[in-house]
């Protein structure tokens, strides 16, 4: 890669976001991935130089966190939750189907280098199990067939919408969002879905409410 003047400026902007610049290291590495599709040695060295720490100190951080990759991820990162709940509720089958379709294994790129497949841990979406992520945008309640379809459509360059957020862009775009979250996409997609509303709807149906109890009356 080449850290452009623009990227360097953004890295410096991140470092200035915190009372102590080193706090910016995690977002800075996300930004490096947004430019390089991986955390490159050059990216490590630039972060080290900006923060005044050694490249070993940056490497120590890079290798600790699973979201940082040391090989090019490709266009799309595909995650399948195979922790107990998602896995047993069907995530295992989803993973197998994707592994077969992409002809790759855990934490590896597909043969064409376009996709990266990963068995991921609990995504805090257990109510929507099994869950899959595309560039960390959520695909809730997937089946092996729907998951493969998502990948196929992405491979064909078709537009795919995540179930909670915006249209799928690519891995690098999401990594940029993680560094700079005000990406203008906040109004895309839905804020809540039926599973998040199921309790509220039922409460209304049953006439249950907390707000109806006047404040201060016990």
């Amino acid at each position: 890669m080449t850290i452009s003047a623009e990227t360097r400026g953004q890295l410096l902007e991140l470092a200035a976001r915190y009372p102590k610049p080193r706090s910016a290291l995690l977002p800075m590495l996300h930004l490096v991935q947004s430019v390089d599709d991986e955390v490159t040695i050059e990216g490590i060295n630039v972060c080290a130089e900006i923060l005044g720490i050694t490249s070993a100190e940056v490497t120590a951080v890079v290798t600790f966190y699973t979201m940082y990759k040391r090989k090019p991820v490709g266009q799309h990162h595909i995650g399948v939750c195979t922790n107990t709940l998602c896995g047993l509720l069907g995530g295992d089958a989803v993973y197998s189907a994707l592994s077969e379709r992409l002809r790759t294994g855990h934490n590896e790129p597909s043969a064409d280098g376009k996709f990266w497949l990963e068995r991921i841990e609990c995504q805090a979406a257990c109510t929507h199990a099994p869950v899959m992520t595309v560039d960390w945008e959520y695909m809730d309640d997937v089946t092996p067939a729907s998951a493969v379809e998502v990948v196929d459509r992405l491979a064909r360059g078709e537009q795919v919408e995540s179930t909670r957020g915006p249209v799928i862009r690519d891995f690098q775009a999401t990594e940029h969002t993680l560094a700079f979250p005000l990406d203008g996409l906040v109004n895309d997609g839905v804020a809540v879905d039926e599973k998040m509303l199921v309790g509220l709807r039922l409460a209304k149906e049953l006439g249950m409410s907390a707000a109806s109890i006047p404040a201060g009356e016990a």
């Binding site: 995690l26 966190y65 979201m67 805090a124 960390w136 957020g165 979250p181 005000l182």
Partner: peptide, 23 residues
């Protein structure tokens, strides 16, 4: 005078919403 909201990185959809709310 300084608060931080540490959100796991795997949830860009939530990060976006909170960042927008802060803005």
């Amino acid at each position: 005078s300084h608060a931080f909201i540490y959100i796991r990185g795997e949830v860009p959809h939530a990060i976006r919403k909170v960042a927008y709310a802060v803005e």
